[in-house]
Design a protein around this nucleic acid. Structure first.
Lengths: 152, 152
DNA sequence: GTATCTGCAAATGCTTTGCACACCC
DNA sequence: GGGTGTGCAAAGCATTTGCAGATAC
């Protein structure tokens, strides 16, 4: 079953959580953290660090990719975004404020379809429970030739 | 359900297939290709290119890691081995002559448990079929804290 | 002999880090 | 003011590639 692209939270709600998180960690506010989260929220897709850098440079000419990497790492660690490896070219990031989902990736055109299957989710929990292990996170990628690329 | 570590094929059988494959591709025989496949077959685990290089150097003092990469790439492309990314430190390889399986990876000790769930396998096919896409390959990783690491 | 295979060293590409200055509280 | 954030350049690290000599057929 496909996942709608609707965010579960408003952008302002997410930014508020970010500000609280920053306070709790004794950190200081920064425009860039908010800007990157905003870019990911608005795009709704999976962006590479390079694409993100390019986008934030629209408002901030000198933004550097190294800061983008630092911030992405912080945002991922704190659960605001999630990473996905679609191929060998590196990681891509998406906003975490969506329903949990897995990914179908077309190996030809790179298109990504998001889906969730509650039965599979449940089985994953059962499987690890049987082993006495605790499921921390999971990751399922279906690599396909999508309908548009069938003829190629 | 756990997957036994039994190989589906003898080492000689696999090497024979490799030799046929090499002929068909107009390539030449090489000790290293067979040696690497043998190392992976005998180890039964997931080895990094560096570990593989170290092992084949037991019989071949000057073996280089770049050849290992080249050969791993060939063996993967031709279906003799499969790659797995357990963490950010790079890819690991295992012999393909096992039952198809997915991986449970302990984020603490790095232990890997192999399992297969036929129902999930079936669902993955149905999900992609519904979209008119053709499933080429898939990949499911359950990151856990394993029973031995629970207390940590 | 000719094409493939190999080791070596250099290059590549993504990501991380050190440092000095800028900025927040 | 002191600690955190940022840009820049350099470093890291896994992986790839160019090249010349070695090897297979």
């Amino acid at each position: 079953m496909l996942v709608s692209n609707t965010r579960l939270e408003t952008l302002e709600g997410i930014l508020d959580r970010l500000r609280v998180d920053i306070k709790l960690n004794g950190l200081k506010n920064s425009k860039q953290r908010e800007e990157i989260l905003t870019v990911l929220y608005k795009s709704g897709t999976h962006l590479s660090p390079e694409e993100i850098t390019h986008k934030i440079r629209a408002h901030d000419k000198n933004a550097s990719i190294s800061s983008v990497y630092r911030i992405l790492s912080f945002l991922e660690k704190n659960g605001f975004i999630t990473a996905l490896e679609t191929d060998k070219s590196g990681r891509r990031y998406e906003i975490a404020a969506k329903e949990h989902h897995d990914h179908i990736i077309c190996i030809h055109c790179g298109d990504i379809i998001e889906f969730v299957n509650p039965e599979i989710e449940q089985m994953q929990i059962s499987i690890t429970k049987e082993l006495g292990a605790k499921l921390i996170s999971h990751d399922m990628r279906l690599f396909v030739k999508c309908s548009k690329c069938q003829g190629l």
